[in-house]
Design a binder for these strands. Sequence first.
DNA 1: CCATATAGTCAAGATACTTGACGATTTTCC
DNA 2: GGAAAATCGTCAAGTATCTTGACTATATGG
Lengths: 167, 167
Amino acid sequence: MVKELDEKAEALPDHVGWRLWQASRAWQAEFVAAMHAAGHGWFTEARAGLLGHIPRGGTRQSALIERSAISKQAVQQLLDGLEAEGVLERLPDPRDGRGKLVRYTRKGLDALRDGDRIKLQIESGYIDRIGRERFAALMDALRSLDAGRAHAGDMPVNVRGQTPETK
Amino acid sequence: MVKELDEKAEALPDHVGWRLWQASRAWQAEFVAAMHAAGHGWFTEARAGLLGHIPRGGTRQSALIERSAISKQAVQQLLDGLEAEGVLERLPDPRDGRGKLVRYTRKGLDALRDGDRIKLQIESGYIDRIGRERFAALMDALRSLDAGRAHAGDMPVNVRGQTPETK
DNA sequence: CCATATAGTCAAGATACTTGACGATTTTCC
DNA sequence: GGAAAATCGTCAAGTATCTTGACTATATGG
């Protein structure tokens, strides 16, 4: 870690925001690195965020735009990239001449499967590191925080750095 | 209204990475919004990340580069912006003709003061929301996680999935 | 005094977004 | 039935953040 120099001794931040930021960053870095190691070199945090909103059965592009909190143009650009990588494909929606359907390719489904595995591995590592009890307390606190927030109704929920999730 | 698509069964992710990410984003959004409301419209998350490494007494630019996990050029660009906003100023280091000292202006110190206040307010809100005990458990778990990471010889936080070795 | 390491800068480019404008359909409403 | 309006996706351009590469100026240590 950063070594403390004999500088005016202003400690590094230790408030909850800083800690959350650090922990989140570390998780993402670990996840992306593991995905790369698993051969999914196209995987990035931004793409992960979008993929998390695409069910295994596919979805309409417009539905995707609603779920993710970013602009439709941003979604489109991400989709363009993922399509170019061969992770997804876009088909015309037979029920709506304007719409398009977004669907995983085989390559995309493989990545999803690896993502689920990696997610569990990282979680295991966390439990080993801090103990099952502390880990449970962490999840409990984070869930409570989120529940409280939903109450207040603020907050943009964009999804980045989440694993491809499934039922 | 074409809305009868049956993809309702898609649950939101609930693993630790997702929760951490969400909590971190929520904190940042709240903090930045409060800073803006307090009149510090120049405040952004990226800048906050850098400012968090600058002690009130100022620091050398090179020390800043060591502490933050981003490239020196990125630090410089952030610094350029903050200097242009009048939050910081850069002076030649009298002890080293190559070096520069980075120092807060009055405007910067005002922002710092407001930031400290806001941090405490947000923390208070969290404690109200989830209880003092849960909050303490959260901090404990996050600190343990970080300590465990340092132990593992993990690098500080270099973002974006890259793995900079060599130090 | 020279070799080399360190401090900072300049330039160019990648990524992940943004807003604005637009054509093509579908829906609404009279 | 048909125009007005809403929705879906796209194209183009711009911004913020961060990257690598190349360079200058100063310091340091044989």
